[in-house]
Design a protein around this nucleic acid. Sequence first.
DNA 1: ATTGAGATTTTGAATCATTCTAAACGGCTA
DNA 2: TAGCCGTTTAGAATGATTCAAAATCTCAAT
Lengths: 146, 146
Amino acid sequence: MIQNLNKHERESLHEALAKSGQKITPQREIVYTVLLAQRDHPTVDEVYHRALETMPGLSLATVYNCLETFVGCGLVRQVNHERESTRYCPNLAPHAHFRDESTGRVHDIELPKEILDQLTKILPANFETETIEISFQGRTKSSTQN
Amino acid sequence: MIQNLNKHERESLHEALAKSGQKITPQREIVYTVLLAQRDHPTVDEVYHRALETMPGLSLATVYNCLETFVGCGLVRQVNHERESTRYCPNLAPHAHFRDESTGRVHDIELPKEILDQLTKILPANFETETIEISFQGRTKSSTQN
DNA sequence: ATTGAGATTTTGAATCATTCTAAACGGCTA
DNA sequence: TAGCCGTTTAGAATGATTCAAAATCTCAAT
Ligand SMILES: [Mn+2]
Ligand SMILES: [Mn+2]
Ligand SMILES: [Zn+2]
Ligand SMILES: [Zn+2]
């Protein structure tokens, strides 16, 4: 069910790990593969269960470890909504998140650079931003449920 | 140390509770008073300890209950950053939050209506927004630490 | 003013995502 | 082959939040 990483994806992974002095392991490859295979912002537990199908002995703690490593490398972003379990997103482009309250699903929303620029302008002069998070919450209303 | 509610504030509280069919209690008045007294986005535990000084028998569960009630009424907003304890904010104007990583403090950032409008425009047509959360993360760099 | 139904508060236990600990493992180098 | 050091693993610990059940309070109706 889960495809392997393509050349470019494998390269991103290896490069990011190498850059921060960490090793390539089968667990890390599988966890990253799972994230890329289905970009639905899975929780740790969801990643864990998907990865188990490929690597039956994998432990939950390792999934926590791998994801934390990826976040540290800048390979993956954490996505939080309210007090729910943390979700993970391998989309590195600047984007916002829309969380559909009726399905629980989280969608990526492309974020024009223009808006990001405007946002940093509303801050007092001495506030230096490192990250900005924008999250929408609502419902999708089309008849053909996406 | 903690002032009482003024006429307007007491009215907001009573009105919001009445509107959603809930009762006025001393605990609710004190918790709301604590929130208005120091607008630093306290956690439940911080609210609890501040309120204890006025009402020694108060229980932590009640503080959770009161704050949940206020959020349900629309009197107060929850503010989440990463996986930290939830914080509470009685500022009902549309605003973003800036979290200073060096001090842990959370500041309100006024949010021009213009930007909110632009933000809703980046969503696909069938996405109906109920709430938007914008949070900055970074540091304040002035010599006179604010 | 009194009463009673229903809401609220309280205590302590339960939940559950996440983190921690310590032991086992694995690849690499000397 | 032996040692090094980062990684993985299982299980315990943590900590914010929620829950359950009994005691108490509030307020509308009398
Ligand atoms: Mn939030
Ligand atoms: Mn976040
Ligand atoms: Zn995303
Ligand atoms: Zn605020």
